[in-house]
């Protein structure tokens, strides 16, 4: 038995600690989701199961507007981030090392390392100036900011997929009379597709979930789902928030699960 590999399960207390972590992580979410089905107004006073709060949320124009903004923002940001990340991943894996490749790596992954609040403040300073100068208060600022911090999340699965790809396939395509574009369209892109889709989904969720940067950069009257929820919490705490949070949770879980399934398959 002594020659067995190191097994964390045999450490004293490991199981208890792990269970405790899971309970602390998931019990609040379970309570939240359960409460979203509570007919009553007061938390902890169970008055029966219903979709009352969901119905109310779906009739709430402010919520619907915020949801719409969030979906548009997340779609645009994820799209831009994915295209940029795909090009970056191709450049860093396909070319035989170029000057500044290491720097590009750091710049690409910077948003993961820099504290979000710092990035938010830095962006606020510049964007406030631009807003004042141009008078434009639309969604554009958020789209650009979200695209930027979503790039590393889109980049990771795409790069992983590219690194696992057999380069002889592209050589073979070239040997079989395919030009660069035809090879990319018929060989590289289809093989890369699961990575690109996974990257898009990850970026989408990251954008959908963002509070700090959105809250700093949004113009008056503009709200994404998270900033709307934050505002509602400050004003009136009703079970409608639980219903909205549960919906948000459901979307995130579905997308992350989808992305995980895509990257796991056939590699």
């Amino acid at each position: 038995m002594a020659d067995r590999a190191f097994d964390t399960r045999r450490l004293p207390g490991a199981t208890v600690l792990a269970l405790a972590c899971f309970v602390i992580l998931y019990i609040p979410m379970v309570i939240l989701v359960a409460n979203s089905f509570n007919t009553g107004k007061v938390i902890g006073q169970w008055e029966g199961v219903s979709l009352h709060w969901y119905a109310r949320a779906l009739q709430n124009d402010a919520f619907l507007a915020a949801a719409r903004t969030s979906l548009i923002l997340a779609s645009l940001a994820a799209l831009i981030a994915t295209i940029t990340a795909t090009m970056a991943a191709l450049a860093t894996t396909r070319s035989r090392g170029f000057r500044g490749e290491g720097t590009i790596h750091i710049v690409l992954n910077q948003p993961i390392m820099v504290p979000e609040i710092v990035l938010a403040i830095a962006l606020l300073i510049i964007i406030a100036q631009i807003k004042q100068a141009t008078g434009y208060t639309g969604l554009g600022y958020l789209v650009i900011a979200h695209s930027a911090f979503c790039i590393p999340f889109a980049y990771m699965p795409i790069r992983a997929r590219l690194e696992g790809m057999d380069l002889t396939l592209e050589t073979a395509a070239a040997d079989l009379y395919a030009g660069r574009l035809y090879t990319f369209r018929k060989v590289t892109l289809p093989l890369l597709a699961p990575g690109i889709l996974a990257g898009f989904m990850l970026a989408f969720v990251i954008s959908l979930d963002d509070v700090v940067i959105s809250d700093f950069l949004k113009s008056p009257g503009q709200d994404t789902l998270p900033t709307y929820l934050l505002g509602e919490l400050r004003r009136n705490l009703t079970s409608e928030i639980y219903a909205i949070s549960s919906l948000l949770l459901l979307i995130s879980v579905l997308i992350v699960a989808g992305s995980w399934l895509l990257t796991r398959k056939k590699t």
């Binding site: 057999d166 396939l169 070239a174 060989v187 093989l191």
Partner: peptide, 20 residues
């Protein structure tokens, strides 16, 4: 001349078939 313009084709050691 680039490989896609040569009337020469290759059978690769690992076959390099397109898996998709």
């Amino acid at each position: 001349v680039p490989p896609n313009q040569r009337p020469v084709n290759t059978v690769f050691q690992n076959y390099a078939l397109f898996p998709h």
